[in-house]
Computed example of a mutant assay.
Amino acid sequence: MSKPEASTPRERYRAQVREEIKKHAWEQIATAGASALSLNAIAKRIGMSGPALYRYFAGRDELITELIRDAYRSLADTFRARAEAGAGLDGLAHALRAWALDDPQRYFLVYGTPVPGYHAPEDTTRITSEIMAVLLDACAAEQPPAAPPSPLETHLAGHRDWAGQHPAPPSALRRALAFWTRLHGVLSLELAGHFTGMGFDPARLYTAEAEAVAGH
């Protein structure tokens, strides 16, 4: 989903400055982490006074919110595009890995350690629901042969708030959770460097986990 274009020169200039501020914020996060994000430091980098910068972002939390919103929106758009192109669980799995490797700091901002003292607004939850809806669609479309429900599936039948109003059956819910937890687990360890020196290719481990979840 593309962002609406600014309609006046003033709006276009404001949008340009906000994008520049976010660019420097990402650079600062890559160097020192999100918890050390400083609007005053960014202002100095772009030759702007602190008070002037606060005309574009009211504070650190608003800037972090914008970065988180952009990150989730990027993944939601990536998933939707792949699904519309016919990708199933395998395709979504590899889209997730490519998205994470393309910008590890973006990945860790939304799937790493929460920023101390920060609480994401509800509109970001709506975007994450879009991501999960695409995943649940894929899981429901690739259902394995019918089998007696597992204990987890029985539990999920009555505990499905995280799936919103999606009509996926409990077996698809279980598959979506397995996809999300197992693949994020491998990605988080890989991006944090925990596989360094272990002598195997993390891409092969990730592919094996993706295939296991997809039932191949």
Rank of each mutant, 00 (worst) to 15 (best):
G112D: 01
L205K: 00
G185V: 12
A15V: 11
M1V: 08
P9S: 02
E20C: 06
G199Y: 04
R175T: 13
G91L: 02
A52R: 11
G117D: 01
Y206H: 03
L101D: 09
T207S: 09
E66H: 05
T125K: 04
R10I: 10
A214K: 07
A83P: 11
G88T: 14
D90V: 06
R204Q: 00
P144T: 10
G88I: 13
T8N: 06
Q165R: 11
S129T: 13
G88W: 04
A212M: 08
S171L: 08
R12W: 07
A87M: 02
H94Q: 07
I64F: 09
S2K: 11
T128I: 05
I46T: 15
D201W: 07
A146G: 11
A85N: 08
L37V: 14
I68C: 15
E19T: 14
L189V: 11
I46S: 06
T113Q: 10
A214Q: 03
M1Q: 02
G185C: 10
T181H: 05
I42K: 00
Y111E: 08
P169K: 12
L177V: 12
S150D: 07
R45D: 05
S49F: 11
L67Q: 06
Y56I: 15
P167H: 07
G117T: 13
Y111H: 12
H155P: 14
S2A: 12
H24R: 07
W99C: 01
G193R: 06
A25G: 13
V213H: 01
A157K: 14
K44Y: 01
I29A: 02
H119C: 04
G33A: 07
R204P: 00
M132D: 00
A85D: 09
Q165H: 08
A15T: 14
L63K: 03
I29Q: 04
A203T: 09
A140D: 06
E84W: 02
L205G: 00
A138N: 12
L189Q: 11
P9C: 02
I29N: 03
K3E: 11
T78Q: 09
I21S: 00
H94T: 10
A81M: 06
A36C: 14
A81I: 03
V17W: 00
T181R: 08
E11G: 15
R14D: 04
L75R: 11
K23S: 07
P9Q: 00
T125E: 04
A138E: 12
